[in-house]
Amino acid sequence: MLGQVLVSGILVGGIYALVAVGLNIVFGVLRIINFAHGEYLMMSMYGAYWLWRMGIDPYLAAFLVVPAMALFGALSERYLVRYTLAAHAHVKIFVTLGLSIALQNLALLLFKADYLNVRTSYQTSTLDLAGFAFSVPRLVAFGALLVTAASLYAFLRYTDFGKAIRATAQDATTARLMGIDVERVYMVTFAIGAAVVGVTGCLLIPIYYVFPTVGIDFVVVAFVVVVLGGLGSIPGAIAGGLLIGIVEQFSGFFVETSLRQVVYFLIFIAVLAVRPAGLFGQRGAEEIGLK
C-alpha cells in the first residue's frame, strides 16, 4: 500500500517536475518572472484538446502544439517582455501579470468555464511492474520528463548557446561584449521555455481536465519546485518535483486535498526563509540579476 503511494507520488512528481523544467529555463536561468507561464500551459492543453476533437491523438498533436507554443513564446518576449527588460521593477512584474489575466479571461470568453477532457484508449490503462500499478499516460509523461530534462541540461551546460543563455542571465552587458546577441538569447529562451510547456500540455491532456485557470494550479507548484530545487538547476527541478509529488501523495493521508496547496506554500516560504539557494542551487546564485 505504501509502495503504491510512493509510486503514484513519483509519477505525479514527474508531472510537476516537467512543468517546473519549463518554468526553470525562463525564471530560474534567465531570472524573468513570467506570470503568464501557467497560461502557456493552459493554451497548450486547449490546443491539444481541440486537435483531439479534430481527430488527432494528443501525443501526435505535440508536433503542432510545440512549434506553435515556441512561436507564441518568442512573440510574447519580442513584443512584450522586451520592453520591460530595462524598465522599473513594477513594470517587469505587472506586464506579465497583465498578460496572464488577459489570457485567462480570453479563454473564459472563448471556451466558457467548462472542464473539458479528451478520451483515448490508453487513458486509463495501467502497467503492472514489480507488483505496482503504473498509469500509462503518467509513465509516458515521466519518460518525457527524463528526455526533456536531460536534453535541456546538456544544452545549457555544453552548447555555446546554452552558455550564452547563462552568461546573459549573469550579466547581459558583458554578454554583449562577448559578441552574444542578447535580444536573440532572450527570444530563443522564451521560445524554448514555451516549447517545453507545449510538450507538457500534450502529455497532460490525457490525464487532466482543461479549463481557463488550469495553469494557475500547475504554475504555483512549478514555482515551489523551482525554488525548492534551486533556481536554474535542472536536477534540482526533478528532485524538487518528485519530492513535492511524494509529499503530496503521502500528505493526502493526513490533510485534506483542499489544504494541499497550503503545504506547498509553506514549503516554498520555508525554503526562501532558510535556504534561498534551494536544494541544488549554488549559494549566492539566487541573487543573480537582482542586485
Partner: peptide
C-alpha cells in the same frame, strides 16, 4: 463572461 477581465489585463 471574461470580457471584463480581458480588458482589465
Amino acid at each position: 463572461f471574461g470580457l471584463h477581465g480581458l480588458i482589465f489585463g
